[in-house]
């Protein structure tokens, strides 16, 4: 499986009423088994890019091909093949973890997935009956990933997946991402975090609405100066 993202453009109306181009002809090529890390300054458009690729927002222009099939014009295929884990867990606080899963999975699938699938790997069974509002940040993030994985998408987009999580939680989530990639999935994650960037096979820096390849060697100072 390979993806080709071509010439993505996206602009917003800023507070002053002017249109601000946040993505300007962005291109990206990637294939299954890769983990792409995207770094960049706050507000440079990383989250917007992921939203556009997941179909949450519409691009002003551009195309997103998966194995030669244009996905932007096929929202159903896009939704089935691309999963987005937003930075803030996209869950319903008033419901239990199980209820949130039931929104997306048939009940029998939940049992199966908890037993020997993705939900079990994410350790969601430990807090299945707990209300989301009473969950820790790490649990919420795992649950959020669990919800997205209901279609087993070959492309997983993660927006700062480990932000504000403790080391154990980070390891847990990054471990899952590694496993996902090792099984042929393509993960694209945005991050400022060296620990996250380290698991990526390729790195990009986002600047002026475009992606530039970057060779990350663990030197954070160098990375910061390149942003």
């Amino acid at each position: 499986m390979e993806i080709k993202v071509r010439n993505i453009e996206k602009s917003y109306r800023s507070g002053t009423g002017r249109r601000k181009k946040i993505l300007q002809g962005l291109d990206l090529d990637a294939a299954g088994g890769e983990c792409i890390g995207i770094a960049g300054k706050n507000g440079c458009g990383k989250s917007t890019l992921l939203s556009v690729l997941a179909g949450v927002q519409k691009a002003d222009a551009g195309s997103f091909l998966m194995d030669g099939t244009e996905l932007f014009s096929r929202p159903r295929d896009l939704s089935r093949n691309v999963g987005l884990v937003p930075q803030a867990p996209a869950l319903m606080d008033e419901l239990s973890a199980l209820d949130n899963l039931l929104m997306w999975y048939p009940k029998r699938d939940i049992i199966k997935e908890l037993d020997s699938g993705v939900l079990g790997m994410l350790g969601i069974g430990d807090f299945l009956r707990t209300r989301v509002r009473n969950l820790s940040g790490g649990m919420k993030k795992r649950l959020s990933i669990g919800c997205v994985m209901h279609t087993m998408p070959p492309v997983l987009l993660l927006d700062e997946p480990c932000a504000a999580l403790d080391l154990e939680c980070r390891e847990n989530i990054l471990g899952y991402v590694r496993d996902y990639v090792s099984k042929g999935g393509l993960a694209v994650l945005t991050s400022h975090d060296p620990m996250e960037l380290e698991i990526c096979t390729r790195h990009y820096i986002m600047k002026d609405g475009r992606l530039s390849p970057y060779s990350y060697d663990g030197d954070v100072t160098k990375l910061v100066s390149s942003l």
Binding site: R76, S79, P86, W104
Partner: peptide, 15 residues
């Protein structure tokens, strides 16, 4: 609010 929090992002836009 839920849309802004992307609660329904796993569902296709057409839905």
């Amino acid at each position: 609010r839920d849309e802004n929090n992307m609660v329904f992002s796993p569902a296709p836009a057409a839905k």
